[in-house]
Write a protein that binds this DNA or RNA. Structure first.
Length: 789
RNA sequence: GCCGAGGUGGCGAAAUGGUAGACGCACCGAGCUUAAAACUCGGAGAUGGCCUAAAAACCAUCGUGUGGGUUCGAGCCCCACCCUCGGCACCA
């Protein structure tokens, strides 16, 4: 009794479109607003299994919330700037814009065909001038408030993609996109000052009810360290070396000082050192190494600056100064005080160079990194190291300092298909924002896409002429474009007012709809997009442009769908599952139900795609359609049926709110199993079943609703709020001496005496009691009876 | 190394401190069928016992990574350890 899923799907989708079911009236005040967000996709052109898992399962929740009477905003858009379009342009000579919009059109169809209930009227497309105009406007606001800055810095460069990258886009020293080893370059680039928000980003996490692993990953990424700045004067010279340390308590144990090879003082001191040639050779050698090579080579290297001595501010001791690449120029002050007795790295280096080790904290073997009483530390001897820490800093003339691992966000890219940075340079080379009347500052089309390391926009004649015409002779354009993560840092604000030509969003709607109730996405964005979006929101909040300082109340990172072999899907392993094949054979609904059933959605686990899984869900759906043929309007509603319905309804709602759709589906199966034992089923029961099925299998549910004579759409019905009747009796376990010995069914108000009497009739209980009388009885009505003899 | 999340049948998994393994996959048996598919019914943690022609039912012991502990009672709480996954890592 197979149903024709293609026909059912086509009819249902046409019906929803005609009824305009999913367009959210944002100003509606009769229902409680709920903003459900899922990360907008890059329009790669084809929906893979990951897209299905992301959108179809989130859609189940959107539909469930609507049935439960919420005014649900469930928008969609496209993160449409980015490299693949440009690469297609380079490879096949197509227009990146055309390529992108063609893909968007295709993906709209695919998303509709999975039965996703997106509100397409709110669609945003990041590469559309009506959108990027406001990306540009927001950038100018950040620039005006000194949160965007152009400066020269050591940056990561991807030689394959021919562009700089943000720190967050470098994974294990490789480009996140193309896996190419990144290089370090010194370039003048645009940065957003996310580090100014490091503390706020950290503090905000404490209040968020997110899973600990997401919060911890962000905390680790921000990497706050509290310590002190201390100055080591150079003996007989003007200069001093400023170090950052988290262990000022060990100051008396410093036996040498180390500068990073890139530290500016190294060059200054070069003429003063006795071994200039050796130092220069070392600097040249380290300059050739990537940061990754340096950190992978645990064997430390370095040379002494002979003839130079630093003075320990605590005791006036003169100690040697080294240049070594185990000290990073980019962290702290680029210089450290070395305490071999209480730091593993310094210990290793001192060991290598035969440098002295001086213990200042009592305790175990060296290097000893734990706390303890101070020794050999002058007036501080005997005090607890932690307790004396700040007194030592004060005595040494230092000051408290905090350092972050987080770096400012590098946002300029030497690529074409991105949002043009809304900046022009005056004849002196000073940057100016482009006034809002000239926004959108459109992306020129007369460019050469071939990557040369030079930004493609530099080849545009039109752009240069445009700048000259508007700003005058001698003014020049900015040629870089923005990182696409800038586009995606605020798209969720635009959904509230996507067509507004006068503002980036609507203030009163933001007040009503923000923060976003629930944001569903991938764990790969934990320290990228999710951090950037929080930063943007906080910055815009401080500029009074948005009413909230955290964008997302709840965040769920979904798991990963693996190949049938349990391995990550990849073409080279040949284990890639194409959802289209399954949709064609079993229907979109079966694939949706399978994805919901595969495992909990609230945990970032990984689930293998079982080849028989979708088929079994299809069978389940067919069993439901067969049930519907047994509908009888005159059949009597029994108490058992009512309870079965109530149990399913309650369970699905509870589990849905926890993003546990697997047990929700199971609850539905239990109900269906029970209904199969009933000869004639009241129509009202089956209608309730159709409504509860609707979030999971929206097309079939619509079809069944019609067959059951329901009015309108099943998706516009109220959730069946059957009430769970108070139970009268329950089967509970009986234990003797804490060991399970059987089960008895008891009235919930049965007395302890009754419970014991009935339990004793069980042979297993009687045997276990061995004729003895109970010494103690634990009886929790409805839960357990434990007889201790 | 540090931080976080986990570890339950052949597989995906379920269980507010109270009958561990719901629900499903795969599997086994039976029915329907000329046959198969589909469908329907039933079974199933392991080991042993009892009864048998054989099975079921029934009974016992063991069983949620390992070892301890708290508790009348632990998959769940506490301590130590092992393993898997994720994050950070020469960050001073």
């Amino acid at each position: 009794m197979a149903y024709d899923h293609e026909d059912v799907e086509k009819r249902a989708q046409a019906k929803w479109k005609e009824l305009n079911l999913y367009e959210t009236d944002l100003s509606d005040t009769s229902k409680e607003p709920y903003y459900l967000l899922v990360e907008f996709p890059y329009p790669s052109g084809d929906l893979h299994i990951g897209h299905w898992y992301a959108f179809a399962v989130t859609d189940i929740y959107a539909r469930m919330l609507r049935l439960r009477g919420k005014n649900v905003l469930f928008p969609i858009g496209f993160d449409a700037f980015g490299l693949p379009a440009e690469n297609a342009a380079i490879k096949h000579g197509v227009d990146p814009k055309e390529w992108t919009y063609k893909n968007i059109e295709r993906m709209r169809d695919q998303l509709t065909s999975m039965g996703a209930s997106f509100d397409w009227s709110k669609e945003v497309i990041a590469c559309d001038p009506s959108y990027y105009q406001w990306t540009q406007w927001l950038f100018t606001k950040l620039f005006e408030h000194n949160l965007a800055e152009r400066r020269n810095a050591a940056v990561k460069w991807c030689p394959h993609d021919q562009t700089v990258l943000a720190n967050e886009q470098v994974v294990d020293g490789k480009c996140e996109r193309c896996d190419t080893e990144v290089e370090e370059k010194h370039l003048t680039q645009w940065f957003l000052k996310i580090t100014e928000y490091a503390d706020k980003l950290l503090a905000g996490l404490d209040e968020l009810p997110w899973r600990e692993e997401i919060k911890e990953a962000q905390r680790a990424w921000i990497g706050k360290s509290e310590g002190a700045h201390l100055d080591f004067v150079l003996a007989g010279r003007e200069e001093k070396i400023r170090v950052f340390t988290t262990r000022p308590d060990t100051l008396f144990g410093v036996t040498y000082v180390v500068l990073a090879p890139e530290h500016p003082l190294v060059a200054t001191l070069l003429d003063a050192v006795a071994n200039k040639a050796e130092v220069e050779a070392y600097m040249a050698a380290t300059a050739k190494k990537t940061e990754r090579e340096r950190s992978e080579n645990k064997e430390k290297t370095g040379v002494e600056l002979k003839g130079v001595k630093a003075v320990n501010p605590a005791n006036g001791e003169e100690i040697p100064v080294f240049v070594a690449d185990y000290v990073l120029a980019s962290y702290g002050t680029g210089a450290v005080m070395a305490v071999p007795a209480h730091d593993e790295r310094d210990f290793a280096f001192a060991d290598l160079k035969g440098l002295p080790t001086k213990r200042v904290i009592e305790g175990g073997d060296l290097p000893h990194t734990k706390n303890g009483p101070l020794v050999d530390s002058g007036e501080f001897d005997g005090r607890d190291n932690e307790e004396a820490k700040w007194d030592i800093v004060a005595a040494a003339g230092g000051e408290r300092a905090t350092n972050y691992r987080l770096r400012d966000w590098l946002v300029s890219r030497q690529r074409y298909w991105g949002c043009p940075i809304p900046i022009v340079y005056d004849p002196e080379g000073k940057p100016h924002t482009i006034p809002s009347e000239h926004l959108p500052w459109t992306l020129p089309t007369d460019v050469d896409f071939t990557p040369t390391g030079e930004a493609p926009l530099a080849s545009s004649k039109e752009l240069k002429e445009r700048v000259t015409k508007i700003f005058g002779e001698g003014w020049t354009p900015e040629y870089d474009t923005l990182d696409t993560f800038v586009d995606s840092s605020w798209y969720f604000l635009r959904y509230l007012d996507p067509k507004d030509n006068h503002d980036f969003s609507d203030q009163s709607l933001m007040k009503k709809w923000l923060p976003i109730d629930r944001y569903s996405g991938g764990s790969e964005h934990t320290t990228m997009h999710l951090l950037y979006a929080r930063f943007f929101t906080k910055a815009l909040y401080d500029l009074s442009l948005v009413p909230v300082d955290e964008p997302f109340t709840e965040r769920f990172n979904r798991g990963l769908i693996m190949g049938p072999d349990g391995q990550k899907m990849s073409k080279s392993k040949g284990n890639v599952v194409n959802p289209d094949d399954f949709v064609k054979e079993y229907g979109a609904d079966a694939v949706r139900v399978y994805l919901a059933f595969i495992g909990p959605y609230n945990e970032p686990g990984s689930y293998p795609w079982q080849l028989d899984g979708v088929a079994s869900m299809r069978k389940f759906l067919e069993r439901i359609s067969r049930l519907v043929e047994r509908a009888d309007a005159g059949a009597e509603m029994s108490k058992e049926l009512e309870q079965a319905l109530a149990r399913a309804s309650t369970k699905i709602v509870e589990d849905g709110d926890r993003f546990k759709f697997n047990t929700g589906v199971a609850a539905l199966m239990i109900l269906v199993n029970a209904l199969e034992d009933v000869q004639v089923i009241p129509t009202s029961v089956l209608r309730s079943l159709a409504i509860m099925l609707a979030p999971f299998a929206p097309h079939l549910a619509e079809d069944l609703w019609e067959k059951l004579g329901g009015e309108g759409s099943v998706h516009a019905q109220p959730w069946p709020e059957a009430e769970l009747a108070a139970e009268e009796e329950r089967t509970i376990g009986v234990q003797v001496n804490g060991k399970h010995r059987g089960a008895v069914t008891l009235a919930l108000d049965a007395s302890e005496e009754t419970a014991i009497a009935i339990a004793r009739t069980l042979p297993t209980v009687a045997t276990a009691m061995d004729g003895k009388e109970p010494k103690r009885v634990i009886y929790v009505p409805g839960k357990i009876l434990n007889i201790v003899v």
